[in-house]
């Protein structure tokens, strides 16, 4: 395994999370959840450390991380964009909204812009179907958006 570039604080935090779950192999998913919530993503070295703490192979942890779409190995952007592709939003054209975000930023779903500002993900229903189509940037909800508005919305975060 590779030598890693994690700082001591981060290593301790991850060890603490594993220990809080009894360093049990069966707790892998819960541990990954908590670590991702803490650090935003699960890079290879973090997975290796977790694997060692709970005595499973790194391949096993990587298998879990790549199976569940919730887990990500890429850091999210400073302003994570989530476009709703639930039924109501979808029929009101949210796919076009998503495409416009992708086009404006030049990245795909699950990716982050090189400057680390934006990342794009999609989700299924935020419970605001009356506002369809809906997109979230961070915690802020944008409703009834049109493709023309995408550029202006992004501009709000450019500074």
């Amino acid at each position: 395994m590779a030598k890693v570039k994690l700082d001591d604080n981060k290593i301790q935090k991850i060890k603490d999370i594993c220990a809080a779950h009894g360093n049990k192999a069966g707790e892998a998913i819960n541990i990954l959840h908590e670590v991702q919530n803490t650090f935003g993503y699960l890079p290879a070295e973090v997975q290796e450390l977790i694997a060692e703490q709970i005595h499973v192979s790194a391949a096993h942890i990587y298998g879990i991380v790549t199976f569940y779409s919730f887990f990500t190995m890429l850091p999210k952007g400073e302003h994570p964009i989530s476009v709703c592709l639930g039924t109501a939003c979808y029929v009101r054209g949210s796919e076009k909204i998503l495409d416009e975000f992708k086009r404006q930023l030049g990245i795909n779903i699950g990716e982050t812009t090189p400057d680390g500002k934006f990342s794009i993900n999609c989700l299924r229903c935020v419970g605001a179907c009356g506002l369809a189509p809906v997109a979230l940037i961070g915690d802020k909800v944008y409703g009834r958006i049109t493709t023309d508005q995408v550029k202006d919305i992004l501009a709000e975060y450019q500074n």
Partner: peptide, 15 residues
């Protein structure tokens, strides 16, 4: 280990 899901699922090494 088995990695990825659906059509992309395959047995592979870590990362």
């Amino acid at each position: 280990s088995a990695v990825n899901r659906g059509f992309m699922a395959v047995v592979a090494t870590a990362f």
